[in-house]
């Protein structure tokens, strides 16, 4: 499949993960989120930005528990749990948030 953004075609795999990570920008993230029925707010962005920073540093998406710990650190204890992440990304933080962040499908995620 592919995304159409401002007249440009952005290639993605059959599940909607973009194939060239370097073409990612915030407008594209919003477009992918729309496809996932997610309306991006500050809390979504916080997770997406964390994923991108982590990937930049380690060349891999973080383990869920790492993501939860980071969210707990920056947004407080009541948000640092799996339930909060699933509220933001109903189909799973791994699948949906990584897709919106323009990262590859996480290793070990079927």
């Amino acid at each position: 499949m592919a995304y159409e953004l401002n007249g440009a075609t952005i290639e993605a795999d059959e599940e909607g993960y973009i194939t060239d990570l370097s073409v990612w920008n915030q407008d594209l993230a919003k477009l992918i989120a729309e496809d996932e029925n997610i309306d991006m707010n500050d809390e979504h962005w916080e997770v997406v930005n964390f994923l991108r920073d982590y990937y930049e540093e380690y060349q891999i998406a973080p383990a869920v528990r790492v993501l939860i710990k980071a969210v707990k650190k920056s947004m407080g204890k009541d948000k640092g749990n799996n339930k909060y992440l699933y509220t933001l990304f109903p189909y799973g933080p791994a699948k949906q948030a990584c897709k919106i962040a323009g990262l590859p499908k996480p290793t070990g995620c079927v």
Partner: peptide
């Protein structure tokens, strides 16, 4: 990151 549930 993975959505695999904990090993039971």
């Amino acid at each position: 990151m993975s959505d695999i549930p904990e090993e039971a």
